[in-house]
Amino acid sequence: MTRTSRRWTEWTIERALQACAAGSVLITVGIIGVLVFETVAFFREVPITDFLFGTVWTPQFSDAQFGVLPLVTGTLLVSAIAMAVALPAGLLSAIYLSEYAPARVRRVVKPVLEVLAGVPTVVYGYFALLFVTPLLQTVFPTLSSFNALSPGLVMGIMILPLVSSLSEDALHAVPTGLREGAYALGSTRMQTALRVVVPAAFSGISASFILAMSRAIGETMIVAIAAGQQPRLTGNPMSPVETMTAYIVQISMGDTPTGSIGYRTIFAVGMLLFVMTFTLNLASDWLRRRFREEYA
């Protein structure tokens, strides 16, 4: 190959790589741009205070009301149930894997846990609707066929590996010297784990919690299938609720005309969802970076 042609090849490859990188940035900017554009159009017709603080969400009715709170509480209710499952179970399995399990057990259990994360969410959705809900109804006869409880529990199982895997990484990164220091003072294994290692990994563990929360808030398929489509302002896990994500699915799949106010609601809700998960991701990232600095 001559020197000129080699230089030209280098130039082409460099430009191609640059274009790929620029492409993903442009697409992200484009998505946010569309979100902002449609959201602004929405708020020209509906005051932002009505949207954020209204308690009734009936955009499809002739007497349309655009209070997003029922969707937000629906989302938070299901997410809270999911977190109530995933946090303790995830943290405890992380502590077991990092501090108790022999290397052989860890090598088997960790990948198995991570398989849970690879199950398609639509499977979890039908699992919630067709298996968990009927099962729960034998215990709570008043439970509706669509409810917050069942998808919340199943979502908890779905995000459990996220919590356990990231928390385990954080625990594992705690220097052995700290464990030895604790043992040398006459600590039991549990005291070492709970009073020294877990606090030392605190920021990494909270980063995993926040990331799991963000994942729960953004999760769509399970709630769209099993939680129902009734936006109601309630804290009752037995009743049907509609989450922000499930609402977006409902309208996107329906026959709402493009450009109508009903169509624009999904962008406003989408924007709110994006702001929530983006904030959580930033917080998680910040915590994880701080954790890395501690033991660099």
Partner: peptide, 17 residues
């Protein structure tokens, strides 16, 4: 109990955070 009676100081100082 043994480690309570036999204290140890390590090469790399390891104060708890």
């Amino acid at each position: 109990d043994l480690r309570r009676r036999v204290g140890m100081v390590f090469q790399k100082s390891n104060p708890f955070p």
